[in-house]
Design a protein around this nucleic acid. Structure first.
Length: 278
DNA sequence: TTCATATTTCACTTTACCTCA
DNA sequence: CATGAGGTAAAGTGAAATATG
């Protein structure tokens, strides 16, 4: 049905959850549940792997650079534990920027970017204590690679995430956040497109409805002023022998229904009969 | 089967940064 | 040049779904 094909935009309420089918035995903690997770991680028993391992994590302040723990676990065994610290020039080369840096960056080589980044990071080290969080700005190169990756797959499995993070010199969490936001942007755009389609559909149906109302009014007037058969030449009228209804014997409709009146049915159900535009 | 816990994703929100009037 | 408004994107938060033991 055309209405479904074009007007069914797929808009629906409710959320969907996409599970990653390639989910393996790799686990990573999240910043956004950081305090939460740290508490949980602190209670994890790593003793069988690292008998004397202790996680010396400070409690997180909301506006303080959070640490991140990445626990790689392959086939049930902990392979590595990586501690990241956002905002530290030693832990990440990624590109924090201030306004001047951003303007410069787009025209810089990777090497230069790194230099600028470390400059910024060094600046940040000075006010690391108690400073507000700084926002990462991705370089053009990083964005391009992420976009390319997104074209291939809109979700990442942990291995892909890890590899991409390594390639881009970002933390896995940052790659993950980028994909989350990218998916959200895609969805928003799609919703906007669907909204426009629905608006068009609505307009078409409104026009159709107006036209049909007008036609109905005209038919009512005709019915009041004279019976239909009175307006037709007598020669074109035939009488149904069984029900004694009158119809015109001419035209294409006569073959289908010799007793029908009018050339075509004008009353559409938009949900079963597509309107012109939908 | 039920329950607790861990992980991932989503929707929504906050916040830093950028652009422009 | 300074500044405030508005937009955008990175990151934070809580909840739901799902997997696992």
């Amino acid at each position: 049905m055309v209405f479904e094909g074009v007007c069914n935009t797929g808009l629906s309420l409710g959320s969907t959850s996409i599970n990653n089918p390639e989910n393996d035995h790799f686990h990573e903690s999240h910043n956004h549940h950081h305090q939460h997770k740290i508490n949980k991680l602190s209670s994890l028993k790593f003793d069988h792997v690292f008998p004397s391992l202790t996680l010396g994590l400070s409690s997180e302040h909301k506006h303080r650079a959070p640490e991140e723990i990445v626990v790689s676990k392959i086939h049930g065994e902990i392979e590595s534990i990586v501690l990241y610290r956002q905002g530290s020039s030693r832990s990440t080369v990624s590109s924090y920027s201030n306004s001047s840096v951003k303007r410069e960056r787009d025209n810089l080589s990777a090497e230069e970017v790194e230099r600028v980044s470390s400059k910024v990071s060094d600046d940040q080290d000075q006010d690391e204590e108690g400073s507000a969080r700084k926002k990462l700005r991705l370089t053009k190169e990083q964005s391009t690679i992420l976009e390319d990756s997104f074209k291939e797959h809109t979700t990442l499995n942990p291995k892909q995430k890890q590899a991409l993070a390594k390639q881009l010199n970002l933390r896995p969490r940052q790659v993950e956040v980028w994909f989350q936001n990218r998916r959200a942007r895609t969805k928003l755009k799609q919703t906007e497109v669907e909204c426009e389609e629905l608006k068009k559909c609505y307009k078409t149906l409104t026009d159709e409805n107006r036209r049909l109302q007008k036609e109905l009014q005209e038919l009512k007037v005709v019915k009041i002023t004279a019976p239909v058969y009175m307006q037709m030449p007598a020669a074109t009228l035939t009488m149904c022998p069984s029900c004694e209804r009158i119809g015109d014997g001419s035209g294409e409709n006569s073959s289908k229904s010799p007793f029908s009146i009018g050339a075509k049915p004008h009353f559409y159900n938009p949900f079963t009969h597509p309107s012109a535009a939908c």
